[in-house]
């Protein structure tokens, strides 16, 4: 089995991508109790914005910077002017709203960019391969994992080492109480939602060169990302880390060992976790 190390690394790269998508999703859900169906559509938007910007400028690093910023603004506007308005009508309305948004975004993308895959080629350093332990491996996949590690560590530093982090963690426990203690929770919600959108945008930029850019990419990752936050436990960042690694490796080795069954394996894992611990690996009992 000489492929094992390679598939392990493939798993890590996909885990990195999954983490970038699910970190924002789980944070938004933990705090606002909104399961954001548009989250993956925003990831797709990030990929398409990046495709266009890359073609215009040829600067991948610029895409990494600008596209998440774009998505941050879109996220802030969606939260402030749409989500907040339907909030008083309950979760079903919020769910429907994000569902509708996902649909609109996907159709818009098809209108503007067409309903076919677009290949994204990045040249330069990131497009090369590296040789280690006798295997040749694309630098780009290592880069993806590195990005996820940096984002994860930065988020952990903010959550556990700053005053803002205390407020955010408290809001995951009980946002109404945080509001009653004098913190502008509506503003925190806008910020968190926008940050989640920016993260998914970043993931989209990164996904482009790995998976190609196509309208179905949102749907594809959404399923895995939902599984990640269910397995990891809703609202738990640590859970998202562990579950991303699990799902990433499972997908990767699933393709190697049981090519027809790799998706079923993911659902099996989810079912097993839900039976043993219904709140997810790191979820708090409710």
């Amino acid at each position: 089995m000489s492929e094992v190390p390679v598939f392990f690394l493939h798993g890590l790269a996909y885990a990195g991508l999954l983490f970038l998508v699910s970190a924002g999703l789980t944070l938004v859900f933990g705090m606002m109790n909104v399961l954001n169906f548009a989250h993956a559509a925003m990831y797709m938007l990030g990929a398409y914005f990046s495709f266009t910007l890359l073609r215009a400028t040829g600067q991948f690093w610029l895409c990494l910077l600008v596209c998440p910023l774009f998505l941050f603004i879109i996220g802030a506007l969606v939260e402030r002017f749409l989500l907040r308005r339907v909030h008083t009508y309950g979760h079903l309305h919020e769910l429907l709203l994000t569902f509708g948004l996902a649909y609109i975004m996907t159709e818009l993308v098809k209108l503007i960019w067409g309903n076919f895959p677009l290949a994204v080629n990045i040249g330069g350093f990131l497009g090369q391969t590296v040789e280690f332990f006798g295997m040749i491996y694309p630098i780009y996949r290592i880069f993806i994992f590195g990005c996820a590690v940096i984002v994860g560590l930065s988020m952990a530093a903010i959550l556990y080492k700053t005053r803002l982090g205390i407020i955010l963690r408290a809001a995951v426990n009980d946002s109404e109480m945080v509001n009653a203690l004098g913190f502008d929770v509506p503003l925190v919600f806008t910020g968190v939602f926008a940050f989640g959108a920016a993260l998914s945008g970043l993931a989209g930029v990164i996904a482009g060169p790995l998976l190609t850019t196509y309208p179905g990419m949102a749907h594809e990752i959404l399923i895995d990302a939902f599984v990640v936050i269910v397995v990891g436990g809703f609202g738990s960042l640590g859970g998202a880390v562990v579950a991303s690694l699990l799902i990433g490796e499972l997908q990767s080795f699933g393709v190697l060992l049981f090519p027809k069954l790799s998706l079923a394996l993911v659902y099996l894992l989810m079912a097993a976790v839900l039976i043993i611990k219904p709140s997810g690996l790191f979820g708090e009992k409710q």
């Binding site: 009653a180 004098g182 929770v185």
Partner: peptide, 24 residues
């Protein structure tokens, strides 16, 4: 007004059933 605005005016609220932040 929003709860946070009322809190900032100097009203403190201690809820029933405690509601401490469990993971803090």
């Amino acid at each position: 007004s929003q709860p946070y605005q009322i809190a900032r005016l100097g009203v403190g609220y201690v809820p029933e059933d405690r509601r401490i932040f469990k993971s803090l």
